[in-house]
Design a protein around this nucleic acid. Structure first.
Lengths: 186, 186
DNA sequence: TACGCTAGAGAACGATCGTTCTCGGATCAA
DNA sequence: TTGATCCGAGAACGATCGTTCTCTAGCGTA
């Protein structure tokens, strides 16, 4: 198996286990068993567990934002893409195994002791905010709306992550519609 | 020292260390050093670390919601108490050592492996939602507004916890004002 | 066939975890 | 004073952590 495939298997195993149970609750031995890679191989691919965590978050960021971008891109009307963000969140929340936002969780667990994890969380949220900003600007809406929508989306993720219910997405969506209507009255 | 005082010292030490660095990053030895209590005493007061964690969250819940309640109670006009919630959040975010919402963080770290911690997080958010609901109802506003405000507040906490900036409170407050205006137009 | 290199399996390392045990000094009643 | 009880100090326990090392089987090349 070449390094690319091995790396994918390592990241797949780590992402699922870290997300489900938390990072510190998963040992390198379990990562070895789940990935089918030897510890020697794992440490050849990643210098240490922290680098593996960062790589997992980095790859997840690309996938997560691409999934969102694909979903909203299917909506033709630019202004309707913003409620579509919250529809997508609701679908995600309802998936089996959903346990909140991986960056909120990772930052909560390790943000106080790992500068690399904290930086990864900040970077992901910065990118997500930029994605939202593009939607706002494409819809011809005022730029300050971006931060209000960001807070709604983050609140939906945080609340759904704790309650386990997908409803916060609908609440955030309803609030977003009100904000949109106030920003660009019909 | 009687059990009440010892318990307070244990909870004080645990709350500060857990909040600053995360729960699993703090060992019982460090809790002993910081609290000045012997391990024997700590284990006499709490059967295990998990019960100590739950007790910390429970006491923090009372203090946190009381601080919020005291702040908003000082605002005479009921409708103005809702923006005051976000003012208070902003003050909290700006405090030195702020590192996000303790329940979001704890749930992110241990929600997947500790049912007791996950339950404590759900309970805290349920109580916070009830507090918001009272403010909404006292202001004569429609009840569904409660969940929208909850999402805004949670989003402000999650975002501030990651970015380290107090600004999300202002963004949430601005959005809340728009929602209030839409719910009860002047 | 002999050799050098790679990498898997998994033992081993030192550190640290949560928890319990041992020891000895302090306290207090009789 | 004696004896019983309490409890702090901290060693010790078994488990597990992240990481490294040893051993060996398999491989391609001469």
């Amino acid at each position: 198996m070449d390094d690319g495939a091995a790396r994918t298997r390592a990241l797949d195993a780590a992402e699922e286990l870290f997300y489900t149970r938390g990072i510190q609750a998963v040992g390198m031995d379990e990562l070895r068993d789940r990935s089918g890679l030897s510890l020697r191989r794992l440490y050849a691919l990643f210098p240490g567990k922290e680098e593996l965590v960062v790589a997992v978050l980095e790859r997840r960021d690309e996938r997560w934002r691409r999934r969102l971008a694909d979903h909203v891109a299917a909506v033709p009307e630019p202004a309707e893409r913003i409620p579509a963000v919250f529809d997508w969140l609701g679908e995600w929340f309802a998936e089996p195994g959903f346990r909140g936002c991986a960056w909120i969780n990772s930052n909560g667990e390790l943000g106080g002791v790992s500068a690399a994890v904290a930086a990864q969380a900040r970077e992901h949220k910065r990118r997500f905010r930029a994605d939202l900003g593009r939607l706002v600007s494409d819809a011809g809406l005022p730029e300050p709306l971006t931060d209000e929508l960001l807070v709604l989306a983050e609140g939906a993720m945080a609340t759904a992550g704790i309650t386990g219910s997908p409803e916060p997405a609908a609440h955030a969506r309803r609030a977003a519609r009100t904000l949109l209507a106030a920003a660009a009255p019909a």
